[in-house]
Design a protein around this nucleic acid. Structure first.
Lengths: 262, 262
DNA sequence: TGGCAGTGTTAGATTTTCTTCACACCCCGC
DNA sequence: GCGGGGTGTGAAGAAAATCTAACACTGCCA
């Protein structure tokens, strides 16, 4: 069964080498320029050899996309992990900056994920790509809402939802901290859009006039985002009297968090 | 000079026809698939004829990009104009929804603007594209900050700026309502990112699991955005005592606004 | 009215891509 | 040690792209 003899290992190594070469090529010429021939050239091989590892171009692209999603999620996770005790910055901001940093460090791969879909390439609908996305989204979900109860989240101050929307959000599958009330789900989506939008604009060069200051603006936006969302979550439930309060309850104790791995 | 004889008119018509065909093709096969041959095929002409109108493919792309930026800005402007008196929805939300609606109505052209930059195509740095962007940005700027004085905006409640950032934002050219204090500029960028991010995620299919409800979530996010930003702007200046106030001062009178055209 | 510029066609040179087929080499397991 | 499958090369088919060159028709303008 596990016939991982030299042959098997060599194959794995070769596959890895091909993926590396493909990533390298993508990093230099963009995702749209990805072609099997180019990858083969970069490896000093002929095109046909690659067909022994990937049945066609789409399969290679799929592998690259999957890996990119995973790497991005890993980067966010790593950011949160390393700065676990640095309480100067809220962990959500740290996670967001991890997202941004990865995107800036790998702009072409980020394009591969969130740019124009590749010509004649349709991502496999329910593949492992969604898995990495869920992983990442549960990180943000946790850092955004940890310390609040479901009741508090359900009472978040948002415009009134239509009942179809409420129903729809209710029945979505939950991947993060168990159940997430509709208002919290909506706020999470809003936050993701905010975060993502700033990164996309920067990586795609639409805010280049801001130069280096983008990092600072991004941090400001994320701090405000966190503050604004927390401000919408009631501190106490029973008494509707909620005085405006700058600092929402932050869980100081590093409580055990749900496992995030696959 | 104005030798707009039949020849001139025919040329203009033909050029327009080419652009239309190109847009049509882009709308069906995406920006990446744009080729002179394809456009020519759509027109029932041969490729070479197009070279009499556009020196090369990039020139055609540039024209399309420019037009798309203009159309987007027009759509936002139109949205604001039509719903000028419908006070049910803040005008900023109306503008944002105009942005979103255009993007959804023309996803491929939106990709052309904000997706992966096209292969081997570099947008002309300081062309008319930036002009349309400025037009649009000044709309959002107005709807976001109209009714506040520069002093109020300068005192907006944001994390402390580093002096380089402050200096940088100070010296940026101002296109909208004259001078915009650094905190307001930063908030505007943040808002643009928020708006854009939600639209990008939706148009590129990353939030398809929300289905039709995205419109409602988007509206909620934009309402909150406006509220949150206004909450950061002090109502009165001299007395630091600022009670929390749900509704910031809104200019009821349709005051004359600065010209937004070229 | 005569020539020139604009507009279109046909031909062709050149490049790049994906993919399949047939053949050669060599490691691995039996 | 022997055979088969994994791994590579070479050749070739089929399609598409950009762009140049040479040539014909036609309306415009002097």
């Amino acid at each position: 069964m596990a016939q991982s003899s030299l042959r098997r290992r060599r194959r794995a190594a070769a596959t890895q080498e091909i993926l590396d070469a493909a990533e390298h090529h993508i990093s230099e010429h963009g995702p749209a320029a990805l072609s099997l021939r180019a990858v083969a050239r970069g490896l000093g091989m002929t095109v046909q050899a690659l067909y022994h590892y990937f049945p066609n171009r789409d399969a290679l692209v799929t592998a690259l996309v999957t890996k990119a999603y995973d790497d991005l999620a890993d980067a966010v996770q790593a950011a949160v992990d390393t700065a676990a005790d640095d309480s100067a910055l809220p962990r959500l901001v740290v996670a967001a900056e991890g997202y941004r940093r990865w995107a800036i460090a790998h702009p072409e791969r980020f394009q591969l994920l969130y740019g124009t879909p590749l010509r004649d390439y349709a991502a496999p609908a329910e593949g492992p790509t969604t898995q990495a996305t869920r992983r990442m989204s549960s990180i943000f979900e946790r850092e955004l809402f940890d310390g609040f109860t479901a009741e508090q989240l359900a009472a978040a101050d948002t415009p009134v939802f239509s009942s179809p929307l409420r129903a729809h959000l209710e029945q979505l599958p939950h991947y993060g901290l168990g159940y997430l009330p509709p208002p919290a789900t909506a706020l999470l989506m809003s936050a993701w859009g905010h975060l993502h939008g700033l990164v996309v604009l920067e990586v795609f060069g639409h805010t280049s006039f801001l130069g280096d200051r983008q990092a600072e603006i991004f941090r400001m936006a994320m701090r405000n985002l966190l503050e604004d969302i927390h401000r919408r979550i009631p501190v106490h439930l029973s008494p509707p009297h909620a005085a405006d309060q700058t600092e929402p309850p932050r869980t100081a104790a590093p409580e055990p968090r749900p496992r995030t791995g696959p």
